[in-house]
Simulated assay, not measured.
Amino acid sequence: MGDVAADLISRARAGDGEAFRELTEPHRRELQVHCYRMLGSFQDAEDALQDTLLAAWQGLGRFEGRASLRTWLYRIATNRCLNTRRAASRRPAKQWDIPDVEPPEPTGLGEVVWLEPYPDALLEGAIDAPPGPEARYEQTEAISLAFVTALQILPPRQLAVLILRDVLGFHANEVADMLDSSAESVKSALKRARASLQHRRPTTDDQEPPPASDSPSEDAIVARFVRAWESADLDALVALLTDDVFVSMPPMPFEYEGRDVVARFCASIFRAGRRFDLVPTRANGQPAFGAYLRAANGISHGIGLYVLTLTGDRICAMTRFENSVLPSFGLPRSLPSQ
């Protein structure tokens, strides 16, 4: 530990709040992303981060410096998130609530109804640092909606071990210390978590990778989607979809998989006369849009956020979230119709 850090810790232990903020601020965003991966909910992650910082402030006197401050903070954050997961008081599923739309029968019902998107604006500085040598996933892949959703199905302890080992790259002994466990127990939990994740995540071996963020290729797909959606052009929209395209809409559990049924779902929305303005943003490293329903009074009202998952030059998934997430993206609740 350097002299500066030691001085800050000494001052923070003496009650200097500014010293504590200076100590913890470099780790704040990556800890929030860690809590998000653990919990799948942006709001829950923010609550867990605040709990973590409060616990660190109150417990700084017990920090012995055997591990780095960053590792100590991850230990606190992980255990706060595990407590949240075990409390089982997650957001419940909601019934269908889109007026005047009669959707087709869903092909499935999702389990992770508490899923929320994560604003890309908050990822800056949070996933740029290289992970430890044990990591198996790219940091950008490990924030994608598909990956975060798959994580939520894992039992809490397996979830924690997999993130700490395979996403963040901590050594088995470090993870064992964080979880008050043994290295053997960590290795066993990791093996089971990897097998479960492999089973639940759709295979991507035969899928083209998505275009690079903000590249001309991505911009072209996004522009075609916006034109099709805003003009309710079903044929143009369907032409953008993969055969196995997947639509979900947490906290409503309804899921639609396959181009034909997704086309019928979108047709039910357009047939109801609903017309939209889309405002671009980014979530989970993916293109996203605030969706605003046009009204007769010239005002468009925010009804949700769409996040697209791309493969090659096609859309392979679209996730619709409620309008309660719009403020996290700096998007208004309403705007003048375009």
Rank of each mutant, 00 (worst) to 15 (best):
A5H: 13
D7R: 10
S10Q: 11
A12V: 07
A14Q: 14
G15A: 05
R21A: 15
R21F: 12
T24S: 12
P26C: 06
E30K: 08
L31V: 01
L31G: 07
L31W: 12
V33I: 15
C35M: 02
M38A: 03
F42Y: 13
Q43A: 14
E46Q: 13
A48L: 11
T52V: 13
T52Q: 03
A55M: 01
A56G: 05
W57D: 00
R62E: 14
F63M: 10
G65N: 13
A67K: 05
L69Y: 06
R70P: 01
Y74C: 06
A77F: 07
T78C: 00
T78V: 10
R80W: 00
C81I: 11
R91A: 12
R91N: 14
R91K: 13
P92S: 01
A93Q: 11
W96G: 02
I98C: 05
P99L: 07
P99V: 06
V101W: 04
V101C: 03
V101H: 02
P103L: 04
P104G: 05
P104S: 06
E105P: 05
G108L: 10
G108H: 06
G110S: 01
E116S: 15
E116Y: 11
P119E: 13
D120I: 04
E124H: 15
A126G: 01
D128L: 10
D128E: 14
A129Q: 14
P130W: 02
G132R: 13
Q139K: 12
T140Q: 10
E141C: 06
A142V: 02
A142Q: 09
A142W: 12
I143D: 06
S144G: 08
A146T: 05
A146R: 13
V148T: 04
T149E: 14
T149M: 07
I153W: 15
P155R: 00
L159V: 06
V161W: 09
L162V: 07
L164Q: 01
R165A: 09
V167A: 02
L168M: 14
G169C: 10
A176S: 07
A176V: 00
M178Q: 14
S181T: 09
S181H: 09
A183G: 08
E184C: 02
S185M: 10
S188N: 08
R192D: 07
R194Y: 01
S196H: 06
R200S: 09
P202T: 11
S213N: 04
D214G: 05
P216S: 07
P216E: 06
P216N: 03
V222A: 08
V222C: 12
V226E: 09
L234D: 12
D235R: 11
T242M: 03
D244Y: 08
D244W: 08
V247Q: 14
S248K: 08
M252V: 06
P253N: 07
F254K: 00
E255M: 15
E255P: 04
G258L: 10
R259G: 05
A263D: 01
R264G: 04
C266W: 15
A267S: 12
S268F: 07
S268G: 04
P280H: 04
R282I: 15
G285Q: 09
G285V: 09
P287F: 08
F289T: 15
F289W: 12
Y292N: 05
L293W: 14
R294P: 04
G302Q: 15
I303F: 09
G304L: 01
L305F: 04
L305H: 03
R314V: 08
P327V: 03
S328N: 11
G330I: 15
L335F: 06
P336F: 15
